[in-house]
Design a protein around this nucleic acid. Structure first.
Lengths: 143, 143
DNA sequence: GAATAAATATGATATACATCATATTTAAGA
DNA sequence: TCTTAAATATGATGTATATCATATTTATTC
């Protein structure tokens, strides 16, 4: 479904949503272990997220990565698209260039409703929404 | 979403559904071009499908690959699972081992309904169903 | 039963994705 | 302003997926 990089990114951002704020930064090495992702790898993913303003960071001593209020209001798709681009989620399921509503591929009408439903859901949910679910015990972020 | 191998498999099977039967076999080389897939690659995929009885084949002169009546009644998921296994479609979206209804991951309730809807749809549709769509002009299999 | 034409089996190469390692930049504190 | 601690940039290695090539098996036809 999603690439590993996207899964790692989602886990990292959710972890930051619960465990950081502009006063409380988290070092990459302290984030890698609890979400069970290789440190060097998640570091690279975080760099990309930082570049695209999905997360915030400061360098040097007392530095770290974190989410500020603006970051928290981003949608979940923004994370996915930041890492693997939009096409992968919206492209024709059979990779047909000419697939469209007027000339749909055999899977188009079958699968697109579910797919579009999923995308809509991911567009409407913010990082903060999910963080509140975790904080209130409605969902969990285990290994 | 799906791997290339799965996409190629789906295209190949749909092509066979429309262009073959037990009296009319298709050679691999005559199948590769119209569905725009490298011949040597689709050959390998077809071998796997044949081994798993998703498609039929005979060797030697006048041989080829084709779908018999039984093949046509298989569901679309059977093709997907034959190539990439079931886990990939049903596993937790964040790859969490312990994700389940009692302790759901943050994406669980969000994404699973759409996902299960899609799987159900793919389970209920047979290859023949889609072949009829193509034959009647309701859907298309272009490049 | 020999020649031929097809799928099948096997393995080699290429490309993309995942992981690891290290040098560079930046900010804090003494 | 020097030292240190953090993220960042860059590149190297490993692994899985995709692609290519070739030898083997099997069925047909003469």
């Amino acid at each position: 479904m999603f690439s590993k990089s996207v899964k790692y990114a989602l886990k990292a951002v959710l972890f930051l949503a619960v465990n950081s704020n502009d006063k409380k930064k988290v070092m990459v090495k302290d984030l890698a272990k609890p979400i069970n992702v290789p440190q060097a790898y998640i570091a690279k993913v975080l760099q990309e997220l930082s570049k695209q303003k999905i997360i915030s960071s400061t360098r040097g001593p007392k530095g770290g990565v974190f989410l500020d209020e603006k970051n928290r209001e981003q949608s979940l798709v923004s994370i996915i698209y930041a890492i693997e681009g939009e096409k992968k989620m919206t492209h024709c399921l059979l990779n047909l260039k000419k697939c469209n509503l007027a000339k749909p591929c055999p899977l188009h009408h079958l699968a697109n409703p579910s797919r579009e439903e999923l995308i809509k859901t991911l567009k409407n949910k913010t990082i903060n929404d999910l963080a509140m679910d975790i904080k209130s015990g409605r969902s969990f972020l285990p290994i």
